[in-house]
Design a protein around this nucleic acid. Structure first.
Lengths: 356, 356
DNA sequence: ATAGGCGATGTAAACCTTTACATATGGAAG
DNA sequence: CTTCCATATGTAAAGGTTTACATCGCCTAT
C-alpha cells in the first residue's frame, strides 16, 4: 500500500498525544465553583434555572478550567449523537462536492456533524457503513445512492435505520422524502430551447438503460418535443453517463446516413464526450451541431466551446435535504414527500441556430 | 433559504422514526442467553475467554435480538470515538475528492468514520468545528488547510487538539507530520521535460504570492532550469490558482514585446486558463506554445488539447495520511515527519517541440 | 404564627458498555 | 483427602453527562 516511490525525509516522530492531564470534567468545574454538578449542567444548558450569582461563579470556573462537555457522555445520556451520515456511490461524481457543501453548511448551522460514507456501489462497503447506523452512531441519513442500504439482519428492513432523506436520486420507499432538481421540467426547458433555435432533429443521449434519472430527463425531452408546433420524432441514442460513453455514442451514430442537428445529453460529462467526438470528426460546435448538457459541472465553462447546460442547484439541494432531515429529527415536523428544485438554463456557446 | 422556485409534490409525511421498541441492549442479550452482561461482552470482544458452549448461546441470543453494541456507550467507556475529522478550506477544490476517497478508504478499513469540516477559509467556521475537537468527539485530525486550527481557549495552543496529520499542504509545527506530493521534484521533472522539447524561454505561472505550494513548485522549476546545458533565465508571471487568473496572466503578458514559448503552470486550473487565453488570441497549443499543468485534475483529459500535466497521487496521499494517523492513534508507532510522494508526468497533447 | 408556594440547589438514577477483581468449579498433584 | 491452579463466570465500578425528584430557605398570604 505504501508507494515504493515515496520519499521520506526528516526524523520519525511520535504523534502528539492529547496533553497528559486529562481534560476537565463537569466535576472539576463544580468543585471549583463550589456547587454541585447538576448546577453546572443547568448553568450551561438552562441558565434561567440558576441564580445570577451562581451562574457567574460557574462561568468563571469554566473559563479557568477550559472545560468543554464530553460529547460522548452527552450523547450516551441524551440518546443522540448530533451526527448525520451521507451515503454516496461516488465521491468522485462531479455533482457530489456541491451537494456536500450544502449538506455540511446546513448541518453545521444546527450543530450537527457530517460523516462521509463512500459505497463505490458495492454492497460490502455499504454493509461496512451500516455499523454507524445500527450502533446509534448517527442520528440520521442522507442517501445519495438511490436505494436503501442493505440491512444485515433483515428483521424489519427499515426499522433499524435512522430517519432518512434521499437527495439527487430518489428512493422508492414511501417513508423516504426526496429532494432534487426537477429533471423532467428542466429537460423539457432545454429541449424547447433547442427547438426555439430551429432544430427539428434532436437526439437524446441517455445514460444507458435502467438509470431512473436518465429516464426522467428523457421524459422531459419527450414532453418538450410534444409541445413543438410541428411533430418531431423521438430519437434516443445510448451513452453511459461518462464522456467516453458520449464519444462512443457519436461514433456509432456516424455509421448511419442521417444525423440529428442537435443533442440533448443526459449530463455534462456525456455532452463533453459528444462535443469532443464531433470535433475529432472535423465538425464544429455550435456551427454544425448544437449540444446541450445537464448539471453545469464546474468545468462546463472551461471547455471550448463553453457548454450550454442546465444548472442543478447542488448547494441548495444539499441545504434543503439536510434541513428537512434535521427538522424531522428535532421534533414532530412533517416534511414534503418530494421537493423538486428549478434548474436554470445556462446559455453559453455550444448551441446555435439550425442553419437552413 | 428555501428556493422560491421549488416545487413540492406529494403529501407531507412524518419522518420515520426508529422503531418504537428501542434497540436491544447487552442486558437483553444476557437475559436471553442466561448469562451476565460481562460474559456477553467477553463473548463479543475476547471470545477465547468464554467457553465454547456459552459462546454459542450468546451468539444465538445476539442473532435473535438483533443486538448491536451501542457505540456511544462504548465510546464513553473506552474514551475514544473511532472518528476522525478532515478539515479542508474548500470541498470544491478539484483535488479534494481524490484525497477524500483515499482517506475514507483507509479509515473504513480500520473501522473509523470520517467527519467532514469545511472551513471556507474563514475563522468562524473553523471555530465552529473546534467543538468536535475539544469535546472529544474525534480521535484525530487530518489537516488539509495548511495551518493549525485556531483554538478558542489559548491555554496551550496544541494541547487541546487531538493527534494531527497534515496532507496536501504542510503545517509549520514540529509535531505535525506531512504527507503530500513531491512538489519540488515533480516540478523539476516537468521543467526538464519542456527543456527536452527544445524550449528555452519558459515561464512559471504562479499562484499569487505567499502560497507555499506555489513556492515549492517554483523552486522545482528553478532547479530544472539550473540543470539545463545552457543558462536559462527565470521568468515568473503571476496567476492566482484559478483558470481566470491564468487567463488574466496571459492577457497582461501580451502587453510585453517578448514572449515565452512554454508555460509551466502552478496547477491545471491555471493551465486551462492559459490555454484558453492563448486560443482566444488565435494561437494554437501545442504548435505555437507549450503548456504544462500540475495536479491532473479529472478534466485535464477532456479539454482540447488534452493537458500534459503532473499527476498528483491523491488517493494514495489520502490513504497514507490516514494510515499514519490511525497508526499513531492506536499505539506507540512513530511516523515519518515528512512523506513526499512521487508525481507522474502525464504526457498528453498540450506540449510540443519548440519550432525553430 | 403558619401554611403554601416558589425559586435555587443538591442527590441520585439512568444512559450502556468494558474490565478489574472476586468467586466458583473442576481437575491434577501431592 | 487436601491444596493449588486454571478456567469460566459473575459483581460492581467507572466513564461523564442530564434531569426527575427531593430538599431547603424564604417570602407571602391567611
Amino acid at each position: 500500500m505504501r508507494n515504493p516511490a515515496q520519499q521520506i525525509t526528516g526524523p520519525r516522530i511520535k504523534i502528539l498525544n492529547r496533553s497528559a492531564d486529562r481534560p476537565a470534567t463537569i466535576e472539576d468545574v463544580a468543585k471549583l465553583a463550589g456547587v454541585s454538578i447538576a448546577t453546572v449542567s443547568r448553568a450551561i444548558r438552562t441558565p434561567r434555572k440558576v441564580a445570577e450569582s451562581t451562574r457567574k461563579k460557574v462561568t468563571a470556573a469554566i473559563a479557568r478550567t477550559g472545560y468543554t462537555a464530553n460529547a460522548m457522555a452527552q450523547n450516551l445520556r441524551m440518546q443522540r449523537s448530533r451526527m448525520v451520515m451521507v451515503l454516496t456511490q461516488s465521491i468522485a461524481d462531479p455533482n457530489f462536492p456541491g451537494i456536500l457543501i450544502g449538506l455540511e453548511k446546513a448541518a453545521n448551522e444546527l450543530g450537527y456533524g457530517v460523516l462521509i460514507g463512500n459505497t463505490e456501489g458495492t454492497v460490502s462497503f455499504e454493509e461496512n457503513h451500516m455499523r454507524f447506523l445500527s450502533s446509534g452512531m448517527v442520528d440520521g441519513l442522507i442517501l445519495l445512492t438511490g436505494h436503501l442500504p442493505v440491512v444485515g439482519h433483515p428483521k424489519n428492513p427499515i426499522s433499524t435505520l435512522p430517519p432518512i432523506i434521499a437527495a439527487t436520486c430518489p428512493v422508492s420507499h414511501k417513508d423516504v422524502s426526496y429532494v432534487g432538481v426537477d429533471d423532467v421540467g428542466s429537460s423539457k426547458m432545454a429541449t424547447e430551447y433547442l427547438i426555439s433555435l430551429g432544430h427539428r432533429k434532436i437526439a437524446y443521449v441517455s445514460s444507458g438503460s435502467s438509470n431512473p434519472i436518465s429516464d426522467l430527463r428523457q421524459e422531459g425531452y419527450v414532453k418538450g418535443l410534444a409541445e413543438a408546433a410541428e411533430p418531431i420524432t423521438e430519437w434516443r441514442i445510448e451513452g453511459d453517463g461518462s464522456s467516453e460513453g458520449g464519444r462512443a455514442a457519436i461514433e456509432r451514430l456516424f455509421i448511419k446516413d442521417t444525423l440529428p442537428t442537435a443533442f440533448f445529453c443526459y449530463n455534462d460529462d456525456t455532452a463533453i464526450g459528444v462535443i469532443s467526438a464531433l470535433q475529432i470528426r472535423g465538425y464544429r460546435v455550435p456551427e454544425d451541431f448544437s449540444v446541450i448538457g445537464f448539471d453545469d459541472i464546474p468545468f462546463s465553462n472551461n471547455i471550448t466551446p463553453a457548454l450550454t447546460t442546465v444548472r442543478q442547484p447542488r448547494k441548495q439541494i444539499g441545504e434543503i435535504a439536510m434541513g428537512y432531515l434535521l427538522d424531522g429529527l428535532s421534533g414532530e415536523a412533517t416534511i414534503p414527500n418530494q421537493t423538486l428544485l428549478h434548474g436554470d438554463l445556462v446559455v453559453r456557446e455550444s448551441c446555435g441556430p439550425k442553419l437552413t
